Amino acid sequence: MPETEPWEYSLYIPNDPRAVTICRRTLRLILTMHGLIRLVDVAELMATELVSNAVRHTKGPAALRVRWSVNGVLRIGAWDADPSPPEPPRPFTPELEGEDGRGLALVRACADVWGWHPLSRFGNRGKYVWCELGAAG
């Protein structure tokens, strides 16, 4: 049974492609322990795309943030130190070849809602790209 109390986790990672796998496996464990196993597959895909973008397109550290709200919404987000907006998602079509450029299109297609915003706090800059999945999903 999923939890009714809110919770939030943050995993800070170096700029290292191996961190994407660590984030995905950590997310699977978090959701399983909180009784949200039915969201694992889609949540892993979303987190992989968001964290991959943060690691691939920036030079600094990044973070995976996962939050469960009392209204049954799972928010998955990736922070990175680059305040530049993410590239807009290209239309997702089966004809797209290669692996690059499809991440945010997948997020847009699978998430209930997604977005991003720049951050500036305590002298730190960057952006936060997020998506939400409803528990009914």
Rank of each mutant, 00 (worst) to 15 (best):
V113C: 11
R121D: 13
C131D: 07
H57C: 06
T32G: 03
W79F: 15
V107E: 02
L133N: 09
A19P: 06
I22Q: 14
E49S: 05
V113H: 12
M1R: 13
G77M: 08
R121G: 11
T26L: 06
S52Y: 13
I30D: 05
A111D: 02
T58S: 14
E95L: 11
D82Q: 08
T4S: 12
E5A: 14
G101W: 04
A105V: 01
T21E: 14
R75T: 12
G35K: 02
A54E: 03
G103A: 04
T93G: 05
K127T: 10
N53S: 05
E49A: 01
F92W: 10
I76H: 06
A105H: 02
V129A: 13
P89K: 04
D80Y: 02
S84G: 14
M33W: 11
G126D: 06
N124T: 11
R24M: 12
S84C: 09
K59C: 12
A135M: 10
P88T: 03
T32H: 12
V113E: 15
P89I: 03
P6V: 02
V107M: 04
T4R: 11
A136D: 15
L36K: 02
H34K: 00
E3H: 15
E8S: 10
E132H: 04
L50M: 00
N124H: 15
D41V: 13
R18I: 13
A135F: 11
